[in-house]
């Protein structure tokens, strides 16, 4: 039997964490040692995950590359496949195909000031990157995180995020929630992200910015950053579209002649500006 590109590898759930009422994080390990040994990926890549019998869904790998024994994914419950994930318990099986797509060129970020902007569950694709920067902190210039969510409850990876917030020596973290989403004891900002950027006025000099979140947020942040003097080719984001194969075959995720699964999901704003439309 020749290789079937749709043939997944088996993984086992070894930890489940509730992030918000509709979002859970799963820690997964390969069932076969062989698969575990052969597996490598890079920050920003994604995979096709599935609870057998409930259909595949596309998630980015939300853990850094140097966590050798397992990977993590963060899943928001929406329809059938993600609902099946939310019913999983430790010890259950899932299937995985991947890793697919391109990645954040982290090596190119060495020596530069890095700013990471996440919105809601959009922090998931950035989490690996953040961990990597923190681990290799000395290789980078200033490091700044802005994390926004609709309300306090919707913040994902709360423990980690509050940890980053408190370690000023490692990174400069700003947390914000949309107006109306704050709780009485909320100590972060109450604002959308573009006004925060306006206030912070990050210097475009020697800087790169990585943004991920809801499409509207990405667009507004990009526009604001360009206004602040950033060149579009140092502004990175990771796009999302309905995908079925992840391999460039099923013809679903294209924007013009660009396939998100093959040419993306990581794009610079300069690339996105060259797309004909249908991005946001």
């Amino acid at each position: 039997m020749v290789e079937n590109i749709y043939q997944p590898k088996m993984m086992r759930v070894i930890e489940v964490r509730d992030e918000t009422p509709t979002i859970k994080t799963f820690r997964l390990e390969f069932v076969d040692d062989e698969d575990r040994k052969n597996f490598t990926f890079k920050e920003g890549q994604f995979g096709e995950f599935s609870v057998p019998g409930s259909g595949e869904a596309t998630f980015c790998i939300a853990s850094p590359t140097f966590w050798r024994d397992y990977i993590e994914i963060t899943v928001k419950e929406v329809r059938r496949a993600t609902h099946a994930f939310h019913l999983l318990d430790v010890g259950d099986f899932v299937t995985f195909r991947g890793p697919y797509g391109n990645w954040f060129p982290v090596d190119d970020f060495y020596g530069k000031n890095v700013m990471v902007i996440g919105g809601g569950i959009g922090i998931a694709p950035l989490r690996g990157l953040i961990h990597r920067v923190i681990k290799e902190r000395k290789k980078f210039g200033d490091f700044c995180i802005i994390y926004a969510a609709r309300c306090v409850e919707e913040l994902v990876y709360k423990e980690e995020v509050y940890g980053w917030w408190e370690s000023d020596d490692i990174c400069n973290t700003t947390l914000c929630v949309d107006p109306g989403g704050e709780t009485p004891d909320w100590r972060g900002k109450v604002s959308f992200v573009p006004p925060v950027l306006e206030q912070m006025k990050p210097s475009p000099k020697n800087g790169v910015v990585v943004v991920c979140g809801p499409p509207i947020m990405i667009r507004l942040c990009m526009e604001k950053l360009v206004e602040l003097g950033f060149s579009p080719d140092v502004l990175y984001t990771t796009l999302e579209a309905k995908m079925k194969c992840g391999l460039g075959k099923c013809g679903r995720c294209n924007i013009g002649d660009v396939y998100i699964c093959k040419d993306g999901p990581v794009f610079t704003y300069a690339q996105i500006e060259g797309f004909p439309g249908e991005v946001w």
Partner: peptide, 27 residues
């Protein structure tokens, strides 16, 4: 050539899909 992949029972099937339909890219 566009297709859809779905799990039906204990099988994963792929079948033709069409870009002219609303559901094709909707999430």
């Amino acid at each position: 050539h566009c297709f859809e992949i779905q799990d039906e029972g204990s099988k994963r099937v792929r079948f033709w899909d069409y870009c002219t339909g609303y559901e094709f890219t909707r999430t």
